[in-house]
Structure formats: structure tokens, C-alpha cells
Amino acid sequence: MDRDSILKRLTVLDFLAVDLQLYLDSHPDCKEGIKKYNEVVNEADGLREQYENLYGPLFSYRSYSKKDQFNWTDDPWPWEMCFNFDIAEKEAEN
């Protein structure tokens, strides 16, 4: 997978986890919700590792620094155009 595809899938999965997590905050006993949440986290974990191996750390003090230089500081940063992927390869515009 190329960078944009990995980042897109990771963004999607992490968002799912956030929305599910908020739901679980007020529905702590929902077994089905928990199951789905754990599935999402599991897939996201694997993808996050893949992304970091190829494109650098996502966290400043939790990610391994795998190169000789501390590449946490590397461009681009998320507020820059080129960091972001195009969301609009629209599967279905509503």
C-alpha cells in the first residue's frame, strides 16, 4: 500500500475507534460494541506499525526512532497540504 492509502485506512480506523469509544463511555456494558471496538483497534495497531516503519514516527515519545536521525521532526506536518490524502475518491457522494 502507498502512503496515502495506509494513512487513509489508518485515519478511517482510528476515527471508528474514537466514535465507538465515545459510545462505549455511555454504554459500558455493550458487548457487541466492545467486540467491534477491539477489532478496529487491532487492525489499526497493525497498520500504525506499518506506517511508522515506512514513513516515520506518529508519536513524539512513544514511537521507536528507527533511523540514525531523530526523524520525528521531519516534514511534512499534518497542517501542510502535502501531508493530507484526498478523501474524495468518492465511493458514493450523498
Binding site: T11, L16, D19, I87, A92, N94
Partner: peptide
Amino acid sequence: EPTQALLA
């Protein structure tokens, strides 16, 4: 579906 969820 996941990608639809992000868009929505």
C-alpha cells in the same frame, strides 16, 4: 461501512 463513516 468504515470509509463512509469517516465521510459522514
